[in-house]
């Protein structure tokens, strides 16, 4: 009887080593968290989060949860955080937040509510756990007997078998979902390859086998509104885009005619050049 009480007391108290570990790891975790939210650069945030997660992993180890501790370090810190960094690199590591907060009062209220939440939870925990005596994980059901990992395996494949199987379905679904979201079909809008287009042109599926002529290039202009000239000097009508305003095309009519030689040349007896001679 007294031995049991003693054992409970032992479990209730924390060894000096654990206390030292907590007082080192706890502030580290907090510092990581704060660093994460204050770092301007997203990569720095991710690295601060890695620090927090590593601290937490060690804390799990200290808290007699070696399996979770290693999973935390390997899966979380190793895999998930690396995934984060990977996406960050994809998105662009220089996409740091601007300093200006667009939502009025957002930071102030976030701070106020955060402090309020912390005070509430801390107060509640402090108040409700004053009389609680921790049992500790030395029993056979826990870390005694075959040890932590074996007991957890036991639990997962007996008591928690069905949830565990559900998580497998969840993971599969997540993987497929990620694939669906990430997949980009390059042929989805019926885009033909260059080869297919050429073959289609010669099969007569297009108006003409060759592409439309490009715009002309004059000394004064090289815009798309500039008509291309055929070898005989006349304007190639196909070179004028229909999308360009008709007025622009009409404006060029006289120019085009002048180029085509349709207009009469300057009169020899004229004292001043004709209007149409002006560019």
């Amino acid at each position: 009887m007294s031995a049991l009480l003693l054992a409970q007391d032992a479990a209730a108290t924390v060894t000096t080593g654990e206390a030292i570990a907590f007082w080192i790891l706890g502030p580290l975790a907090l510092a990581g968290g704060l660093g994460m939210i204050f770092a301007r650069n997203a990569v720095h945030s991710a690295l601060f989060l890695v620090l927090t997660m590593l601290s937490l992993g060690v804390i799990y180890l200290v808290q007699q949860a070696p399996f979770l501790g290693f999973v935390q370090i390997i899966v979380y810190t190793g895999a998930i955080m690396m995934l984060f960094l990977f996406v960050l690199m994809l998105v662009g590591r220089d996409s740091s937040d601007s300093v200006v907060e667009v939502l009025r009062g957002q930071r102030l209220w976030a701070g106020v509510l955060g402090v309020g939440l912390a005070v509430l939870i801390v107060g509640a925990v402090a108040r409700s756990l004053t009389d609680v005596r921790p049992v500790g994980l030395s029993g056979d059901e826990a870390n005694g007997g075959r040890g932590n990992v074996a007991n957890i395996g036991d639990k997962i494949f007996t008591d928690y078998l069905f949830p565990f199987e559900l998580t497998s379905a969840l993971l599969i679904t997540a993987a497929i979902g990620a694939m669906v979201l990430g997949y980009v079909d390059r042929h989805q809008r019926g885009k033909k390859t260059q080869k297919e287009t050429v073959e289609a042109r010669f099969r007569g599926e297009h108006d003409r086998p060759s592409p439309l002529p490009g715009p002309g290039v004059f000394a004064t202009s090289n815009s798309v509104a500039t008509p291309a000239l055929l070898p005989d000097g006349s304007v190639a009508p196909e070179s004028l885009s229909r999308l360009i305003e008709a007025t622009a095309a009409e404006k060029l009519d006289s120019e085009r005619e002048a180029v085509a030689g349709a207009l009469p040349g300057p009169d020899a007896r004229a004292l001043a050049p004709g209007k149409e001679d002006l560019p």
Binding site: V102, L103, Q106, W109, A110, L113, G116, L117, L120, I121, G123, A124, R127, S128
Partner: peptide, 26 residues
């Protein structure tokens, strides 16, 4: 349309709920 302002009100609501629960409890 800003997710963060929605999140802010959600947090406010959660705090209210927690506060109410704690008041009932303690």
């Amino acid at each position: 349309g800003f997710v963060r302002s929605y999140a802010l009100s959600m947090l406010g609501g959660s705090i209210l709920v927690i506060a109410a629960l704690l008041m009932v409890r303690f």
